[in-house]
């Protein structure tokens, strides 16, 4: 599904380069569930952002669904991730001004999907996530776990092939975290959605089929489960 080759990300500090990512090679197949682990500052989030095309590497080759991302213009990149990738954030990043329903609906609006179809899709996912009763509430009226549920629902609404999750359980208690991870597993196994998550939590990492350990911008070890 995606291939990273010799990917580096660095900042020029004085005369020397300050590497955040250093010569990373990585392949992810469709249907995988990958967990990226590592201490603070090891480059986990940067790696995830590069995979999600929110950030660009300083060097290296990046292929996604057979396309050379490093060759694309910004507009094309946007179109690409809009089509295939859903994002889930640690801080949920729901839009405070919008209700649950509207938050989930927003990506569809930007994909120019008609009103009727939008309604059906949102109703479907609300039902699936069991949050129909909450559809008219605003994010501030929900618990953290519920907010993340909405965040995931929003990421899934446009039927992405890949979900990128940056510490999705970081702001949740362990019970809520477990529920979210179960949901990811279900999505991965039943719907064949590829998932790449960044996490600190050893237990959560083990939901994945592969754990990649980063240290100082390099892949230290890969563990297959």
């Amino acid at each position: 599904m995606l291939t990273l080759k010799n990917i580096s990300k660095y900042y020029q500090v004085g005369g020397s380069k300050n590497f955040v990512l250093n010569n990373i090679d990585l392949d992810v197949e469709e249907g995988e569930f990958v967990s990226i682990m590592g201490p603070s500052g090891s480059g986990k989030s940067t790696l995830l952002n590069i995979i999600g095309m929110l950030d660009q590497p300083s060097e290296g080759y990046h292929y996604f669904m057979g396309e050379g991302v490093h060759l694309l213009k910004e507009k094309q990149r946007t179109a690409l991730y809009k089509q295939y990738i859903g994002f889930v954030f640690q801080a949920y990043h729901l839009i405070d001004e919008l209700t649950v329903y509207e938050n989930i609906e927003t990506p569809l609006i930007y994909q120019n999907i008609k009103g009727g179809e939008r309604k059906a899709l949102v109703a479907d996912i609300l039902d699936r996530f069991n949050i129909v009763g909450k559809k008219d509430l605003f994010p501030s009226q929900l618990s953290g776990g519920q907010q993340q549920l909405v965040g995931i629902a929003r990421a899934l609404i446009s039927k992405p092939r890949l979900i990128l999750a940056d510490e999705p359980t970081g702001n949740l208690n362990s019970k809520q975290g477990e529920e979210i991870m179960e949901l990811f597993r279900k999505l991965n196994q039943e719907d064949n959605v590829t998932i790449i998550q960044v996490t600190h939590n050893e237990k959560n990492a083990e939901y994945g089929s592969r754990i990649i350990n980063l240290l100082d911008g390099k892949i230290e070890s890969i563990k297959n489960i």
Binding site: L54, K82, L94, I95, Q111
Partner: peptide, 16 residues
């Protein structure tokens, strides 16, 4: 700013 950024991640173009 956050709203603007999140919308972009969700696929909004700048003109939208």
């Amino acid at each position: 700013a956050k709203e603007s950024g999140v919308r972009k991640v969700l696929g909004a173009t700048r003109s939208q």
